[in-house]
Amino acid sequence: MSHHTVSVELENKPGALVRISQLFARRGYNIQSLAVGPTERPGISRLTLRVDCSEHTIEQIEKQMHKLVNVLRVVELLPDESVERELALITVGAPPDRRAELIALGDVFGARVADIGREALTFEIVGRPEELDAFEELVRPHGVRELARTGRIGLRRPGPRQSRAQAALT
């Protein structure tokens, strides 16, 4: 078993998304996260799926998805050859005397304060999903009241291979 991120371009037609989720349910594939939204082309959506499965299964998933009439393209996003990001909103318990400490912690991760209340504040953080995991871990002792993540989205890097400069950028 290993992690795989799959990027799917699909026609924005009624039922297109349900056909994909149904395929996963029916064939017993487990979706870890799923994010869908518009692309640069009108009428075309991009779906980014994260699945935990074997190499054999990911090959099957790609082939089965290719057969769906509304699916235009399926590619696996390999870690070295793609950019992946995710957004999280995290509401953390923050009495007035702890606020400064938390905000400083957020600064290190580039997390913005999206809202602030008397006893809590909401961070907004964008980054690689692993960074989000790390941030979540750090604020957990302060008491995470609510958390929402978008699920990762990804694109293939424009260049054919990852350069050293790109590696530094991620």
Binding site: G15, V18, R19, Q22, K67, L68
Partner: peptide, 11 residues
């Protein structure tokens, strides 16, 4: 269309 989703090529 919902009921037959797992057993049609398309609908």
């Amino acid at each position: 269309t919902g009921i037959t989703l797992p057993c049609v090529k398309h609908s």
